[in-house]
Structure formats: structure tokens, C-alpha cells
Design a protein around this nucleic acid. Structure first.
Length: 734
DNA sequence: GAGTTTGAAACT
DNA sequence: CAGTTTCAAACTC
């Protein structure tokens, strides 16, 4: 088990790491989300609950303020004690012997100690235990994941030739705890005290927000054996989460069943990037519901720590099993649309769906919408038993996949709204199942970085973006099946460098860079959108190249964490509502041309601007003149437009009134009566009237009036003659 | 539409 | 952090 070091995490872009502005997504029903290890009558018992807790802010960082967690490896005798704030980024130890995973802030150190003592830090491999998961902390309680005994693992059928695959790798991500975590049948989960899970960043902002409910999610793979872990937990397939020292609540253990044939490779040095430094704004909730569960499917907005701007990709999969139910109090549409997750307006959700390998995904363009929608056309017919349908995952087929109800599922992943949401999608360089825990206040999505040999049986068979239904009565948590591509895309080069066996990532990264010009991104990309109907050449900014695209995004964020943030944001207190985040640097344009980003945004230059000869300030006469001219021009345009519209309307009206009388029958139009002779006669009349006025020394105004009056008389005569002619013609015809 | 100007971003 | 380069948008003709 590896965890990204704080140093590495510090390299993560702010969008990913910063969560200050993120607020909880309201949960309609606390304590309703749960994970079902298997279809069973116990579906009503969720693994996690949504009960709001005070100071429930939980980040991926497993932080404990006071509680001390101590775990002892029965085999190695290694004891790890942790106390104080604990970040998940720190490695945690896994004790194969006692089948426990200990989230330990000093795990790395303990691991070193264990290693020096002859105990390999990655003990998980030894037992071939596959999945793990997370923690859901409950107040004050450390999380211990207990792995199932591997002694008798009949179902483990590793792919021939892959020695590493036999050694399962566990990815554990603990985000936060919930107070009301409910044990799932056969699964025992102990929760940590919320305070322990609280991250420093969160603590700074909201020490204890009772209003912010914590939502945690546990992702697990369930053995298909259908064995009820509650009564008897097969050592092979179950992992167990134990609660330690829970002063308030009794420790609860969640037994996590693991797939028999997981191919995850345990690669030392692999780390899970979990925002160590900053509290994740939202935690992606991945919930797995028991297929047999009668509970409706629920969708959860899943923020992705990819600052893509404002796109929303939604994947909707519907099956006849059960209706989709929005886990959050918000409507389905709301899940799709940007949701004010954070206090900062503009937070938006995006559902990121790797489509490269998903032929059944359709990209939907919504007119007038900046959001991209993706629909999964063909719903995966994942059976309630969770049996993988894909042959590719044959090795895992025996394993009982997580209870994935593929009934109607809907997932929306909020993509990092530039300044509102920051989250981390930890990318394990090695493929492996990952545990996702979430708090109500924050959701974090942990996605498999690479093709998940082991967990795929459970998830890969589902369409990307599929939301695994939470347990009936469970919280507003949904488990999203996210293809590995997304994780890899989100991952950054820094992670690659850390990976001991990062050949995959490194190679892909190089390839991506070669194919995607880093400096030549179009507006679509800059806006976090897919290119559509663009004139791009060899465009990779599309769903077909989502992997490359996300890598490029990650690269951009590496270089400039602000890359996808809107440049025009809200100013400080007392300042203008809108201001440039960086300020312009104009030298020759005087900040009065669109070269200036401030001017272009129609905002004044501020003190942070470094422009020279700036004229874009409130009192600037040049600016005022420019504005006046612009306003005048705009007014003129509007007037002209209005005049044209009115004239057009009048003409149409005139034609409508005259045409039926005159044109009917003979089919001649009124203007056909205005012959050359008629015009000449009319003009002569007008000239005569003008002469008359001149001779009588009438003032100009009176002369004009006389001429116009004469013109009116002429028109009346013309119309009258036309009508008479029409009438005569009609009578003749009769 | 071609050429020039400009400034942000990337790069060193 | 400063200087240089690159490049696409804005602008001009």
C-alpha cells in the first residue's frame, strides 16, 4: 500500500487540493447510503450512513486531532500507533497476518521499521488479499481494515505468467467518517471519529460545522460466492474493517469481500495521490447497492478533481430493475447541471466518463449549453449477482463483484469548478482496487488509475459512469464506476516519477505529449470543453481521446494550477465584484483594447495589474470616451435594428391589408398599378403643390405639409383606381 | 483575407 | 524573478 507523500501532494494543483470553497451537497436522507457486499435480505443495512455530524468535514487526508490509533500485527508484531491529525496521504500499514489495514499517519515510518525488521511493508501481497477499503470514520475511531484470511482461496485464479497479479494490491483511501455508519451484512465497519478525520485545511475554515454532514463511502468488491460474511466470513474473499477505540460507538467491522481472481499487482512504491495538503472539496461517492435491494438507485454528484471548466458529462444507464433515484436532495437535472457545491458560485459538476473504450457512450450536445452530456446508450446488463459479463475479466468472474445494481443508474461528476472544488483523484500507478470513503461535506472520487485487472470484474463490466446503487436506506452515496483511463489522465507526471514501475504512465505521458501540443490548445480545451464542429486538425480534444485529453489537462495543471480557473473572479471584500485574478500586463494597448484581458472582460484594471500606461480605470477620460462611443454605437445599432423591424412590420402589414382586395381574382399586386405614368403624374402633382406653396410664400414646414398632403391624395387616388379596376375586372369576368 | 500588433503563456 | 520566445487573438488594411 502506498500513499503519496505530502511533498508530492503539494505538487497537485490547487483545483484538486483546495476545498475551501466547497460545500456539502445536501443529502436528502441521512444514513441512507450503503454498500452491499452481496445481494441479500440485509440490503437494508448500509455500510455507511449520511448522518450529519458536527465538524464533519473530512478530506482524503486521514487526519485525527486527538484520537490515537494503535494496531498490532499479530504476525509480525508490528504495532503502529497514530495520534493527532493524520493524513491519508501517509501510508498505512496492512497486516496480512491479522488481516487488518491500519490507517496510520506514520505508516511510512512504520513500514520502514517493519522493513528493517524484515517485514515487508506491503504485506498485502502475501495473503493475496485484494480489496480494501476505506474508512469511514466515525468520531474518534481509527479505522482498521481487516483482511480476510487467504489460506483457502479457491477462487484465486491468477492469470498465467503474471506473478504479481497474484499479489493483490490494496488501495485504501480514507476520506472521512460518518457518525452513523451502519454495518453492512457481513461487513463490519468501524468509524473514526470525525475529528480525527478532519483535515487541517478544513479545520482552518470551518472548525466544526455541524451543518455539514459527512458522507463517506466505501467501495468494495464483493465476492460472488454469496457467502454471508456476517455469519461466516470466508477468509479468501473477505476483508474486514475493524474499528478501534471507539469511545462513543462500539467498533464496527465491515467485512469486505474480495474478488477471487483479482489481478491487481502489488507494486511497492505505488502511491495514492490523496490531497494531503488541502481538504478535498468533495468526495466522490461511489456506492454499491445490492442488486436485490429494493432501494431505488441513487445518483450522486461526483466532483472530479479535474478543472475542466464547465462541462458536465452525464452518464445515464437505465435498466428495468429499479427507477433512478437521486441520492441528493437535488433533482437529477441538478446533478447534471452545475450545482452550487461550494459557497463560491459557479461550482459545477461534470461527469467524466472515459469513453475511449466505451463504444456505448454517446456524446450529446445540448444546444445553448456549455455542458457536454454523455449518454450511455447500452445499459450494461450486469446481473444482480454481479457476475461479470465480459470475458476479458474471466479471471475475476468467479469473484463476486460488488453488488452492482445496474438498474437505472445515473452519475454526475462535478468537475472541479475552478475555484470551488478541489479534489484529488488518486492515481495509483499500479492497477488496483481503491477504497473510497467520503464525508457528507466532501466527496472525493477515487478512481482506478490503470486498467484494473482485479476490480474490473466488478466494475469494468459496467458502463463507465455507472453508479452503483447504494444500499437501500443508505445515504446519498453512490458508487461510480470509473474506468481507469480517467485516473491515468488525471494523474500527473509527478506521480509517474514516483512510481517504481511507472513504465505505463511514463510511456503514455510521453505519447500524450507528443500527440497533444501543449501550447496549442484551443478555446474549447481551455474552457474544459470538447471540441465540436471545430476546424481543428488531428484534434484530440474529444471523447475518443479522453485519455490523452485528461493527461494534457493534468499537464497543464501541473504547469499552471490556475490554468482552468476563470481569470475573472470575485474581488476581495469591498472591491468590485469582478476582477482579474492575476491582473493584466499590458504595455502598449493602454488597457483599452481587447488585448487587455481586463478590458476584454469589461472590468477595470486593479492594483494587481502590472500594466503600463493604463487607461482602464474609472476616471479615465479615454475610457469614458470609449465607453460613450461604444454606448452610442450600441444605441445606434439598436435604433437601426428597431427601425428596420418596425418598417418591415409596417410593410408587411400594408401588404396584408391591400393584397387581399386587389390581388384577389386577377392576381395583380397593388404595386402593379403604380406604373410609370402614375408615378410621373404623382410627381407632377407634388411639384405643382410645391410650386404653389412657393408662390404663396409658405414657410418650409407648411410647404412640406402641403406636399405630403398631396402625396396622400395621390395615393388615395391610386388605391381607389386600383380597387375600381379590380372591381371592374371582377365584374367583367363574371 | 493577409499582414501587423499585442500580450499571455511558456520557456530559459 | 526577469528576460526571451512562442503563438494565437485582436486588430488593421
Amino acid at each position: 500500500m502506498d500513499v503519496v507523500s505530502p511533498e508530492l501532494n503539494s505538487l497537485l494543483p490547487d483545483e484538486i487540493m483546495d476545498t475551501e470553497d466547497i460545500e456539502d451537497v445536501p443529502h436528502s436522507q441521512p444514513g441512507t447510503t450503503g454498500v452491499h457486499s452481496e445481494p441479500s435480505d440485509d440490503a437494508s443495512v448500509p455500510m455507511e450512513t449520511d448522518t450529519p455530524m458536527a465538524s464533519e468535514n473530512v478530506s482524503l487526508c486521514l487526519a485525527t486531532s486527538t484520537a490515537t490509533t494503535k494496531t498490532t500485527d499479530s504476525v509480525t508484531g508490528t504495532s503502529v500507533t497514530t495520534s493527532g491529525l493524520q493524513k491519508l496521504t501517509t501510508p498505512f500499514t496492512i497486516s496480512p497476518a491479522n488481516r487488518q489495514i491500519i490507517l496510520n499517519k506514520v505508516a511510512s515510518q512504520a513500514s520502514e521499521a517493519a522493513k528493517s525488521a524484515g517485514n515487508p511493508p506491503q504485506v498485502i501481497k502475501q495473503d493475496g488479499q485484494k480489496l480494501l477499503v476505506t474508512a469511514i470514520g466515525k468520531s474518534g475511531q481509527p479505522i482498521v481494515l481487516q483482511l480476510p484470511h487467504t489460506g483457502s482461496k479457491p477462487g484465486v485464479s491468477q492469470t498465467a505468467g503474471d506473478t504479481k497479479s497474484q499479489a493483490p494490491q490494496f488501495k485504501v483511501v480514507t476520506i472521512g467518517g460518518r457518525s452513523d455508519l451502519k454495518p453492512v451484512v457481513g461487513n463490519q465497519v468501524t468509524t473514526l471519529q470525525t475529528q480525527q478525520l478532519k483535515t487541517v485545511q478544513i479545520a482552518k475554515k470551518t472548525p466544526a460545522s455541524s451543518a455539514a454532514p459527512i458522507k463517506f463511502i466505501i467501495t468494495k468488491t464483493v465476492n460472488s460466492k454469496g457467502i454471508s460474511p456476517q455469519t461466516s466470513v470466508p477468509p479468501v474473499i473477505t476483508g474486514r474493517v475493524l474499528t478501534q477505540s471507539s469511545p462513543v460507538m462500539p467498533p464496527r467491522t465491515i467485512t469486505l469481500s474480495e474478488p477471487h481472481n483479482t489481478n491487481l499487482q502489488s507494486i511497492p512504491g505505488k502511491k495514492i495521490a490523496i490531497s494531503p495538503l488541502k481538504t478535498p472539496s468533495k468526495v466522490t461517492v461511489v456506492s454499491v447497492a445490492s442488486p436485490t435491494s429494493s432501494a431505488s438507485q441513487k445518483s450522486v454528484a461526483l466532483p472530479v478533481n479535474v478543472a475542466l471548466g464547465q462541462q458536465i458529462l452525464t452518464v445515464q444507464q437505465s435498466t428495468s430493475v429499479s427507477p433512478v433515484k437521486v441520492a441528493t436532495s437535488q433533482s437529477t437535472t441538478q446533478n447534471i447541471k452545475p450545482v452550487a457545491v461550494g459557497g463560491v458560485g459557479g461550482s459545477q459538476f461534470k461527469t467524466i466518463i472515459p469513453l475511449a473504450t466505451q463504444p456505448n457512450v454517446q456524446q450529446i450536445q445540448v444546444p445553448g449549453s456549455r455542458f457536454h452530456y454523455v449518454r450511455l446508450v447500452t445499459a450494461t446488463t450486469a446481473s444482480s449477482t454481479g457476475q461479470p459479463s465480459g470475458p476479458s475479466t474471466s479471471s475475476i468472474q468467479t469473484a463476486k463483484p460488488m453488488v452492482v445494481s445496474t438498474a437505472a443508474v445515473r452519475m454526475s461528476v462535478p468537475v472541479v469548478p475552478a475555484q470551488t472544488m478541489k479534489q484529488v483523484a488518486p492515481k495509483p500507478l499500479t492497477s488496483g482496487p481503491q477504497v473510497v470513503t467520503t464525508t457528507q461535506t466532501q466527496q472525493r472520487l477515487i478512481m482506478p488509475a490503470t486498467p484494473l485487472p482485479q476490480i474490473q470484474p466488478n466494475f469494468t463490466n459496467l458502463p463507465p459512469g455507472t453508479v452503483l446503487t447504494p444500499a437501500p436506506g443508505g445515504g446519498n452515496v453512490g458508487y461510480a464506476v470509473v474506468p481507469a483511463q480517467y485516473v491515468t489522465q488525471i494523474q500527473q507526471p509527478p506521480f509517474v516519477t514516483l512510481a517504481s514501475s511507472s513504465s505505463f504512465s511514463a510511456s503514455t505521458g510521453i505519447q500524450t505529449q507528443a500527440r497533444l501540443p501543449l501550447n496549442g490548445y484551443c478555446d474549447c480545451f481551455a474552457n474544459g470543453e470538447f471540441c465540436n464542429n471545430c476546424n481543428c486538425n488531428n484534434c484530440f480534444n474529444n471523447l475518443e481521446h479522453e485519455t490523452e485529453r485528461l493527461k494534457a489537462i493534468k499537464t497543464c495543471l501541473d504547469r499552471n494550477p490556475e490554468a482552468f480557473k476563470p481569470k475573472i473572479g470575485k474581488g476581495k471584500e469591498g472591491e468590485s465584484d469582478r476582477r482579474h485574478s492575476k491582473g493584466c500586463n499590458c504595455k502598449r494597448s493602454g488597457c483599452l483594447k481587447n488585448y487587455c484581458e481586463c478590458y476584454e472582460a469589461k472590468i477595470m484594471c486593479s492594483s494587481i495589474c502590472k500594466c503600463i500606461g493604463c487607461k482602464n480605470f474609472e476616471e479615465s477620460p479615454e475610457r469614458k470616451t470609449l465607453m460613450h462611443l461604444a454606448d452610442a454605437a450600441e444605441v445606434r445599432v439598436q435604433q437601426q435594428t428597431a427601425a428596420k423591424t418596425k418598417l418591415s412590420s409596417q410593410i408587411s402589414d400594408l401588404l396584408m391589408r391591400t393584397t387581399p382586395v386587389i390581388s384577389s381574382g386577377s392576381g395583380r399586386l397593388p404595386y402593379t398599378f403604380v406604373t410609370k405614368e402614375v408615378l410621373e403624374a404623382t410627381c407632377e402633382c407634388l411639384l405643382e403643390q410645391a410650386k404653389k406653396a412657393e408662390q404663396t410664400h409658405q414657410p418650409q414646414v407648411e410647404a412640406e405639409r402641403m406636399i405630403l398632403e398631396e402625396f396622400g391624395h395621390c395615393l388615395m387616388r391610386i388605391i381607389s383606381s386600383a380597387g375600381k379596376a379590380k372591381s371592374d375586372c371582377a365584374s367583367i369576368n363574371c
